[in-house]
Design a protein around this nucleic acid. Structure first.
Length: 111
DNA sequence: AAGGTGACTAACA
DNA sequence: ATGTTAGCCACCT
């Protein structure tokens, strides 16, 4: 199975109201340092694979989107809708990874 | 078809 | 403490 396929699968498994960082997704998909590829896949494959793109943020918990189709404000809104607290730090949206972060092992144990 | 390019990160200077 | 660099490798052109 290809890396990209695993990434898509993992992202789709992120539960409602939880988030994961690019790095975590990459690591679980089998390549810890390929975080940026996860970003690529999100950027280009969100529509194609119908991904919950708003549930993926960077390792610091910030929204690191640079996409006009899916602006940070929208992502923040979607997350709030899911019950996630989104705070604002210096013009950047932030969510508590400790609190809302999620790892597949918690429920599936596989992947 | 081959190569440039990241919605990233952690490690250095 | 802030800025740069080097891994990473699938996707798009």
């Amino acid at each position: 199975m290809a890396f990209g396929e695993r990434v898509v699968r993992i992202i789709k498994e992120i539960p409602y109201g939880r988030v994961m960082s690019y790095g975590q997704v990459a690591a679980i998909a089998g390549t810890p340092r390929a975080a940026i590829i996860v970003g690529q896949i999100l950027k280009n494959g969100t529509i194609k694979y119908d991904l919950p793109w708003q549930r993926v943020i960077n390792s610091k918990g910030f929204i690191s989107i640079v996409n006009m189709q899916f602006p940070p404000e929208l992502q923040a809104e979607l997350l709030k809708t899911e019950g996630i607290e989104v705070k604002k730090f210096d013009g950047q949206f932030w969510v508590d990874l400790q609190k809302y972060g999620w790892l597949p092992e918690e429920i599936s144990g596989k992947i």
